[in-house]
Simulated assay, not measured.
Amino acid sequence: MEQTLVEIWKTTLDKEAVGLDDDFFATGGDSLLALVTIEQINQRLGWSLNMGDLLRHRTIRKLCATKALLQAAPTERSVIRMSNQGARTPLVFIHPGIGLVDGYGHLVRLLGADRACYGIQSPHISDVAVSDDMRELAEQYADLIEDEFGEDDFHLVGACAGGVIGYEIARIAEERGLGLQKLVIVDGYLDGSRTGAEEPGTEQVRLVDYRYDMLRLIAPHTEHASLDPADAEHDRVYEEVAAVLFGAEAAARGGGATAFAERVYRAFRTTARALETYRPEPLDVDALMLLAKDNETFELWRAAITGELTAEVMDSDSYGVKLCMTDAVEIAARIDDFVGEG
């Protein structure tokens, strides 16, 4: 088991040597490399490892020693515990458009020292269907939060599309009397572009957008050929994304690698459809909003949020969930100051 993990870490971290006590993240790992590593471990060892497990047990020795005790989520579960319990109010991170919570890894390491951090990823990742209506989608997520916290307090954090989902969850939390305290939106954007039936070719455009977002996040410094929507084919896009994530050989074999890319696309498509038809209603909630320079939807947010709104434009070239990676230290400090508790 140790030898297999060493081989996986050497490959994903691109290291000639890996020790049993090397901290994955201190050795060069980040949230995206963690995603690849977790999927490789699950495929080769048959585990059900998730991001929370790797954040809590960062060395090969600890992973092996606690394998039988890992809080590995069953396949149908979408709430992932990303850091251990602490004295301060928990943070619940809502997935961005691609459906995965891995992009919050840097924030969790900075904020999770004395508070529990949870992530809600799209049920599509576990091959479970979810509604593409924003209200119904948020109802499903509110159910998950209510099951996890009951009447206990929590804060919500959402980047990109996750900010919009978090806003709608906040409305439902108010209706149900859940313990939501504060809402943090990192470069959330409002769409509302679809008023009727979808135009022909919309599916191909979404597929191209998914490919662009995934390749930009996975390999930001690599040049990728553009793809015309008219030429976009699902199987080829899944294989291309899988090849960048897991290697060309794994992608060519199909199976788990391409199936994973397909599930992520279903999550992306569902979230995109929900955003296209969503029109926010005013809500009295205390919110922190950290925006990218080119976010043009702030006035829409200003009209929707009737509670105390703290807004700031970030001095960064990143946007969406990428802000949570490149500007994690600054964003974590803003969140910590906003939610208080010392």
Score class of each variant (00 low, 15 high):
residue 104 Y to H: 12
residue 97 G to M: 07
residue 112 G to D: 06
residue 128 V to T: 10
residue 120 I to C: 00
residue 124 H to E: 06
residue 142 A to C: 08
residue 113 A to L: 09
residue 130 V to R: 09
residue 121 Q to E: 13
residue 124 H to G: 01
residue 97 G to V: 11
residue 140 Q to L: 05
residue 133 D to A: 00
residue 119 G to T: 10
residue 142 A to P: 03
residue 124 H to T: 03
residue 95 H to M: 08
residue 97 G to H: 04
residue 122 S to V: 02
residue 97 G to L: 10
residue 97 G to I: 09
residue 97 G to F: 03
residue 144 L to F: 04
residue 109 R to H: 14
residue 129 A to L: 05
residue 102 D to L: 14
residue 125 I to K: 05
residue 122 S to H: 06
residue 138 A to P: 00
residue 121 Q to P: 01
residue 118 Y to A: 13
residue 121 Q to R: 09
residue 129 A to P: 08
residue 129 A to F: 01
residue 93 F to M: 15
residue 130 V to L: 11
residue 128 V to M: 14
residue 144 L to A: 12
residue 144 L to T: 04
residue 99 G to L: 07
residue 143 D to Y: 05
residue 143 D to A: 04
residue 120 I to M: 03
residue 143 D to R: 01
residue 122 S to C: 06
residue 135 R to W: 09
residue 115 R to M: 08
residue 131 S to C: 04
residue 106 H to M: 14
residue 101 V to I: 15
residue 117 C to S: 13
residue 126 S to N: 11
residue 124 H to Y: 13
residue 92 V to S: 14
residue 132 D to R: 04
residue 133 D to F: 01
residue 92 V to R: 09
residue 118 Y to V: 07
residue 93 F to N: 11
residue 136 E to H: 07
residue 99 G to W: 10
residue 121 Q to M: 10
residue 105 G to R: 14
residue 131 S to F: 07
residue 104 Y to I: 12
residue 124 H to S: 03
residue 119 G to N: 15
residue 108 V to A: 13
residue 141 Y to F: 14
residue 133 D to I: 00
residue 113 A to K: 08
residue 141 Y to H: 08
residue 123 P to E: 06
residue 136 E to T: 11
residue 138 A to T: 08
residue 107 L to G: 06
residue 90 P to E: 01
residue 111 L to W: 09
residue 96 P to G: 07
residue 105 G to F: 11
residue 112 G to V: 04
residue 123 P to W: 04
residue 91 L to N: 03
residue 107 L to Q: 12
residue 93 F to Q: 09
residue 129 A to Q: 10
residue 102 D to Q: 14
residue 120 I to T: 00
residue 137 L to P: 03
residue 92 V to W: 00
residue 96 P to S: 07
residue 105 G to E: 09
residue 91 L to D: 01
residue 133 D to R: 02
residue 137 L to S: 03
residue 90 P to Y: 02
residue 120 I to N: 00
residue 138 A to N: 05
residue 103 G to R: 06
residue 138 A to I: 04
residue 133 D to M: 02
residue 109 R to W: 13
residue 95 H to C: 07
residue 141 Y to E: 07
residue 138 A to L: 07
residue 137 L to V: 06
residue 139 E to T: 11
residue 142 A to V: 01
residue 134 M to L: 04
residue 105 G to Y: 12
residue 124 H to W: 14
residue 119 G to Q: 11
residue 112 G to A: 05
residue 116 A to N: 09
residue 101 V to A: 12
residue 125 I to V: 12
residue 132 D to Y: 00
residue 117 C to Q: 05
residue 130 V to G: 00
residue 109 R to M: 14
residue 108 V to N: 15
residue 142 A to L: 02
residue 125 I to Y: 06
residue 117 C to I: 05
residue 135 R to M: 09
residue 117 C to M: 02
residue 110 L to A: 15
residue 102 D to R: 13
residue 100 L to S: 02
residue 117 C to V: 02
residue 135 R to Q: 11
residue 111 L to V: 08
residue 135 R to D: 07
residue 142 A to M: 04
residue 101 V to K: 15
